[in-house]
Nucleic acid binder design. Structure first.
Lengths: 260, 260
DNA sequence: ACCTGAACACCGTTCAAGT
DNA sequence: ACCTGAACACCGTTCAAGT
C-alpha cells in the first residue's frame, strides 16, 4: 500500500490536541467575503442565480446572516458592481489621441462587463457612485478635457457614454444568458440570427420596404462591430463640440466660445 | 325610504329566470384582455407589481389560467411592450429635415415610455420584433435613407438609437420608482441631486480633480436636457456619415462612396 | 456585536382534474 | 379547449432568540 508507505513516518496527533481545523471550519462573515462569494456565483451561473439565499448557502449559513454586513440586496449588487468595475483599465490622457482613448476605456469596460455575465443588468439605472466607478468617470473627463471638449459637453458625454455601454452590455449578455446548457454560443447565435433574417424577409414589402430591403445590413452585426459603430457615432458627436480639432477624420463643429 | 320609493314600480324578476348577470359576471379571458389588464397594473403600480399572480387576481382568477393565453411571463411583457410602443407617433420622411425628424420620433418614444412607468426595463435586452416596434424601425430607416445615410450606417444606427432610448428611459424611471408614496417627484429629485453634489464636492481633489472641478456641470442635468444632449450627439455622429449634408449646423463627414 | 431558525408575504410554472 | 386548485421550488426581509 503506497498510501500507508508514504504516511509511515508521520507523527500521530496527540489525542488531547483537539481535532486540528485543517479545513478552516468557516471563514468569519464579512462584507468583502459576501461580495466575493456573490461574484463567484454570478460568474458561474449568472445574475439570476445571485440571491441572498443562494449566497448565504454558499457560505454555509442562512440568508438572515448576510443582513449584518449588507443592508439589502440592492447594496450587495452595488458593491459587486464597484468591485467588478475596478478591473477596467484606465489610460494616461494624451491630447493627440483623445478620441481613440475615450474608445479604449469604453472597450476595456465592455470587456469587463462581458467577463461577468449579465452584471450589466444590475448596473443600468443606477448612477454608479462607487470609488472605482468614479475613477473611470474621472479618467474619461480628463481625456475629453485635454482634447478640448467643453466642460458642459464633457459632463453630459460621460453620462451618454455610460448609458450606451450599459445598454450594449445588457443586450450582449441577453444572447448568452438565453442559451441552454449544452448549446455552443456560436451555433445558437447563428440559428437566432437566421430566424430573424427569415422573419424580416417575410414581411410585407409595401409596409416595410426598408426593413425588407436592408435585411442583410440589419442582421449582419456581429456583436463587436455593432458596439464599435455606436461608439464611433458617439465619439464623432462629442468631437463635433471640441474646440481644437485634434482628432483624425472626425467632424469638427461650430467651435463656439461657450466652453471653459 | 327613498330607495324603496324609487324601486316601487319595478317588475320583480320571475323566479324561474335565473339571476340576471347584471354585472357581466366576468369577461372571458383572452390574450388582449390579459395584456390590457397587465398594462393597467403597470401604469398604476409599476413593473414590479406586474406578476402573473397579480394580473390573474385582477381578473378574478388564478395564475394558472393565464397560461392558456400567454406562454409565460416573458411573452406577456413582450406583448405589453408592443402594445405600448403603438402609441409612438411617426413622421412623413422629409429629406430637408431628416435629422430633426429622427429626433422627433425618438422624443415621441421617450414620452411614451415615460408615460408607462418603468416599462423600459422590460424593453432592454430584447430585440423588439413586434409589429409596432417594426413600424418605428421602418420609419427611422426611411427617414435616414432619404437623408442620404448609407444603408449599413442606417441599419446600425437604428440599433444605437434604440439602445440609447432604452437606457435613458430606464434611468429616468429609476428616479420615479424609488420615491415613496407621499413624496413629490420634484422634492425627491432636489434632495437626491443635492446629496450627490455634496458627495462629489467632498471627494479628494488630488485624485478626482475633474469631478470636483465640474460638480455643477455633472449634477446640473434636469432629465430632458440630458436626453436631448445624447440625442444630439448621436444624430451628429450619424450625420457625419451622410452623403448629402442636408442638415442644419451639423458636421458633414468624409462622404465616401461606400453607401448605397 | 454577530449570528440564527422560523416565519411572513410573496414569486413563476406545472400538473392532474374538472367542465 | 379552456379553466382551476393545489403544489413545487423558489424569492427578500424581519424578528425574536441565542451566544
Amino acid at each position: 500500500m503506497p498510501a500507508t508507505d508514504a504516511n509511515e513516518h508521520e507523527i500521530p496527533t496527540p489525542p488531547w490536541r483537539k481535532k486540528r481545523p485543517t479545513a478552516p471550519a468557516r471563514q468569519p462573515l464579512s462584507q468583502d467575503l459576501i461580495v466575493e462569494t456573490a461574484i463567484r456565483v454570478l460568474d458561474a451561473e449568472g445574475l439570476d442565480a445571485v440571491s441572498m439565499r443562494r449566497v448565504a448557502q454558499e457560505l454555509n449559513t442562512g440568508p438572515a446572516s448576510l443582513y449584518a454586513h449588507v443592508s439589502n440586496k440592492e447594496e450587495l449588487l452595488d458593491l459587486m458592481l464597484d468591485q467588478i468595475v475596478a478591473e477596467v483599465e484606465l489610460v494616461e490622457p494624451d491630447p493627440e489621441r483623445w478620441q481613440e482613448q475615450v474608445k479604449e476605456v469604453m472597450r476595456s469596460a465592455q470587456r469587463v462587463y462581458a467577463a461577468h455575465r449579465d452584471i450589466a443588468r444590475a448596473s443600468l439605472g443606477t448612477v454608479p457612485t462607487g470609488p472605482n466607478a468614479l475613477r473611470i468617470a474621472e479618467n474619461q473627463l480628463a481625456i475629453m478635457r485635454v482634447g478640448g471638449v467643453p466642460k458642459r459637453v464633457a459632463a453630459l458625454a460621460v453620462d451618454t457614454l455610460g448609458l450606451y455601454l450599459e445598454a450594449n452590455s445588457v443586450e450582449d449578455s441577453m444572447y448568452l444568458s438565453k442559451l441552454k446548457d449544452g448549446e455552443s454560443p456560436h451555433e445558437y447565435f447563428e440559428q437566432y440570427i437566421g430566424q430573424i433574417r427569415k422573419y424580416f424577409a417575410s414581411l410585407p414589402v409595401e409596409r416595410f420596404p426598408n426593413i425588407v430591403g436592408m435585411v442583410d445590413y440589419l442582421t449582419d452585426d456581429g456583436g463587436d462591430e455593432r458596439f464599435e459603430f455606436g461608439l464611433d457615432i458617439i465619439v464623432r458627436g462629442i468631437a463635433s463640440f471640441a474646440e481644437s480639432a485634434a482628432g483624425s477624420d472626425s467632424a469638427p463643429g461650430g467651435g463656439s466660445s461657450t466652453g471653459d
